[in-house]
């Protein structure tokens, strides 16, 4: 349930639009809201679409080019849709020493997609990522923002199966979060 009234002229949900209204008032300079705004927008829309770029630029009083320059810099921001569950496997040093590459290979095989690929049903996408800050609990992966640590190929299978089941339950109920 939305706690805010719908706003005209925005592509965002009433809650997110209200959040952005407040966000820009927090800083001495409005533009400071740009990076969080893009990330939160991506969380809702799925990626930084042209419409997201346009609305962010309008909200902050900067050009769309200013926004695109920032989008291209940050590795979490993407300009194409990812899967519903974006599997990010860390292969940096601490994870590599404990089997991170093997986890990545396992995911490729299991999902049948290469690095940066999306499954045909749109449920999963896969990406090899740099250090996610789980070094002492390696190897690790993030699915969307959730951490999965001390992974083995078997426990990774379980992680994927759980998300697969979640996706199916979600679609039976006609969408969902």
């Amino acid at each position: 349930m939305s706690t805010h009234p719908a706003q005209p002229g925005t592509i965002f949900s009433p809650d997110l639009a209200a959040r952005f209204d407040r966000l820009v008032t927090l800083y001495p300079v409005k533009r400071s809201a740009l990076v969080p705004m893009l990330l939160y927008a991506q969380d809702e829309i799925g990626y930084v679409s042209d419409a997201v770029v346009a609305e962010a630029a309008a909200r902050l009083g900067i050009t769309e080019l200013d926004v695109r320059n920032v989008v291209s810099y940050y590795s979490l921001l993407r300009t194409k849709p990812a899967g519903k569950y974006h599997v990010q496997v860390c292969t940096n040093i601490s994870c590599m020493l404990r089997g991170g590459n093997e986890i990545l290979e396992h995911c490729k095989k299991k999902l049948g997609i290469p690095n940066k690929g999306v499954t045909p049903d749109g449920v999963f996408s896969l990406e090899e990522v740099e250090c996610i800050g789980a070094c002492s609990w390696a190897p690790a992966a993030q699915v969307n923002y959730a951490f999965h640590e001390n992974l083995t190929p078997e426990s990774m299978d379980q992680v994927l199966a759980d998300y697969r089941a979640k996706a199916q339950n979600g679609s039976q109920k006609g969408g969902g979060k």
Partner: peptide, 12 residues
Amino acid sequence: LDVVVQTGAGAY
């Protein structure tokens, strides 16, 4: 004193 929590978006 005001404090704001800010998020990055992936960049070492």
